[in-house]
């Protein structure tokens, strides 16, 4: 029997699905071993009969369910619950699903304030926030595991195609994928000495490197004084070889989320920096260190008192 696959994307950008497609030719034999039963980006299965009175979201039974994106409104929550009900194994695909991702940055503000801001930009006609036939927003953006049980976490923004392919292959072969245990630094070829600059620079000038040499000859960007989230970020980008951002000679910003699911990227990184003797108060925007992992209560609206100061 074929293994059935259902997929949904919730509060996300579709990048994860594009990454899935980026598996390329290898995707085709993989798809041949899988039976797609629900995948809105590629196929036309609907939640319910268009004219039916049924408002329940129905998704066909599947052995494996991929869900990308976090949960930000009641509709997404319903879809997630439907996926959970229909899928034996639920995979959180991408950092939005595992840790909230970029959209969870909104968690730093009360949701109502944020909506107000969006609907009062310079070009927007002054109106109330839409509230008819639009699913109400939740109080904040949640990761999937905050709202339901998740069986496999596959972080990444987006997850590397080779990782997605391997997880699917493992699943088809009846294997449990091994979780990542190391950070981006594991496969980062840059030179590290352990001695770093005692300050952090903004990335307003390029790193120092010899453009004719490989990145292996470049000094670690963190040691060069640039905030690189590599040490607190789960590895795996860049096809598990040279980290993708390092290939572009820019520092990591943490898109795979923390190395261990429950770790706190901001705390881990700031502690690392402070331990090196760097004054954390010189960091202009520390919350940005949680830009990919703002769910799980990590980012929350500032207290009134703090915001005033």
């Amino acid at each position: 029997m074929n293994i059935r696959l259902a997929a949904e994307s919730l509060h996300s950008c579709s990048g994860c699905e594009i990454s899935l497609l980026n598996i390329g030719e290898a995707l085709i034999p993989l798809l041949n071993r899988l039976q797609l039963v629900h995948l809105p980006l590629l196929m036309d299965h609907k939640y319910s009969d268009p004219a039916g009175s049924e408002t329940e979201i129905s998704i066909p039974k599947a052995e494996i369910g991929l869900v990308s994106g976090g949960v930000a409104n009641t509709h997404q929550l319903q879809v997630l619950e439907a996926m959970r009900k229909s899928c034996t194994t639920l995979v959180a695909l991408g950092t939005c699903g595992t840790h909230g991702g970029i959209p969870a940055m909104i968690n730093e503000w009360p949701m109502a304030d944020a909506l107000q801001t969006v609907f009062s930009t310079v070009t927007t006609e002054p109106v109330d926030v839409p509230n008819q036939d639009t699913p109400p927003m939740l109080d904040r953006v949640y990761s999937l595991d905050e709202k339901t049980d998740v069986d496999i976490f596959l972080p990444g923004c987006p997850p590397d195609p080779t990782i997605i392919a391997r997880v699917l292959e493992d699943f088809l072969d009846g294997l449990t994928p091994e979780p990542v245990t190391k950070s981006v630094c594991d496969t980062c070829p840059t030179r590290r000495t352990g001695k770093s600059e005692r300050k952090l620079l903004r990335f307003t000038a390029n790193a120092r490197f010899d453009s004719n040499e490989s990145t292996a000859s470049m000094q670690c960007l963190l040691e060069q004084g640039f905030l690189c989230m590599g040490p607190v970020t789960a590895g795996g980008c860049g096809h598990q070889g040279e980290p993708a951002c390092i290939r572009a000679r820019v520092p990591c910003r943490g898109c795979y989320g923390p190395v261990r699911h429950q770790d706190n990227q901001m705390l881990g990184m700031l502690n690392g920096l402070v331990s090196q003797g760097i004054d954390f108060k010189t960091i202009i925007d520390r919350k940005s260190m949680l830009r990919f992992s703002g769910a799980h209560g990590r980012l929350r609206p500032l207290k009134e008192k703090k915001r005033a100061s």
């Binding site: 509060h11 940055m105 909104i106 730093e108 940005s288």
Partner: peptide, 22 residues
């Protein structure tokens, strides 16, 4: 259109050079 993410809000306060990556 069913969802809204609020980028206009949450890029506020961040160093501008970081925005292209967000």
């Amino acid at each position: 259109i069913l969802s809204l993410r609020g980028f206009e809000q949450f890029i506020c306060g961040r160093p501008a050079e970081e925005i292209p990556r967000i």
